[in-house]
C-alpha cells in the first residue's frame, strides 16, 4: 500500500505534475541551457541533486521550523547545496561548468526547489519527500533533455555532439538562439494541451 503511494508520487512528477510542462516552474534554465543535450543533462542532474538534498534536509527539520523563518531556512539550505554542486562541477567537469556559467548558481532561485520544499517536504515524512524530489527532478530533467534534443538536432544536426543528420541537412541556426528556445517550448506546451484535452 505504502509502496503504491510512493510510486504514485514518483510518476506524478513525471507527467501529471511535471514541473515544466504542467506547473510552468523553473523556466529560466529550461530556456537557457537547452541549446545542446550535454549542458541540459548536466543541469538536470544538478537540479536532481539539489532538490533531493534540500527536500531531505527540510523534511528532517520540519518540526523545528518557525513559520516566519521558514523561507529563510529554505534558501539557506538550497544555496548551500547549490554551492556544493557548483564546486563539484568546477572541479570535475570544468568544461560543463564554463558552458553553464551563472545558470548553476541560479538553481538557488529555481522555483521548483523552493516550491517543493514548501509544498511537500515541510509537510511530508522523509520517504515521501525523497521520492517526490526524485520524481520532480526526473520530470524536469526529461523535459529539459527533450527540448535540448530537438534544438540541438535542428540547430547543428548533432545529438550529444555526434553528427546524426545526413550531409544535405541545413542547420537552422535560429534554433540555437533564444527564439528557438521560446518557440520550441511554446509548441511543446501546445502539444501537451492537445494530448490532455483529448483524454
Amino acid at each position: 500500500m505504502a509502496e503504491q503511494r510512493l510510486q504514485k508520487t514518483f510518476t506524478a512528477g513525471l507527467w501529471q505534475n511535471n514541473p515544466v510542462l504542467r506547473l510552468l516552474l523553473g523556466m529560466c534554465p529550461v530556456l537557457a541551457v537547452t541549446a545542446a543535450l550535454k549542458p541540459a543533462l548536466t543541469m538536470g542532474l544538478s537540479v536532481i541533486f539539489v532538490l533531493t538534498c534540500s527536500n531531505v534536509v527540510v523534511s528532517l527539520m520540519k518540526h523545528l521550523l518557525k513559520p516566519h523563518l521558514r523561507i529563510l531556512m529554505f534558501t539557506l539550505t538550497i544555496s548551500t547545496f547549490v554551492t556544493i554542486a557548483d564546486l563539484y562541477l568546477r572541479a570535475f567537469q570544468p568544461e560543463m561548468s564554463a558552458a553553464l556559467g551563472p545558470y548553476i548558481p541560479l538553481i538557488i532561485v529555481n522555483c521548483i526547489i523552493i516550491g517543493r520544499a514548501e509544498a511537500c517536504a515541510s509537510k511530508s515524512p522523509l520517504m515521501v519527500s525523497l521520492v517526490d524530489a526524485l520524481g520532480m527532478g526526473a520530470g524536469f530533467t526529461l523535459t529539459l533533455c527533450a527540448l535540448a534534443a530537438v534544438r540541438e538536432l535542428l540547430s547543428t544536426g548533432k545529438l550529444f555532439e555526434i553528427t546524426v543528420m545526413p550531409s544535405w541537412f541545413m542547420p537552422w541556426a535560429a534554433m540555437g538562439m533564444p527564439v528557438g528556445a521560446f518557440v520550441t517550448l511554446g509548441l511543446m506546451l501546445a502539444g501537451v494541451n492537445l494530448i490532455t484535452r483529448k483524454t
Binding site: M61, L64, L65, K66, L69, L72, M73, L76, T77, T80
Partner: peptide, 11 residues
C-alpha cells in the same frame, strides 16, 4: 532562531 543559527554553522 536557534535552528537557523545551528543550521548556518553546520552549512
Amino acid at each position: 532562531s536557534w535552528v537557523l543559527m545551528v543550521a548556518a554553522i553546520a552549512f
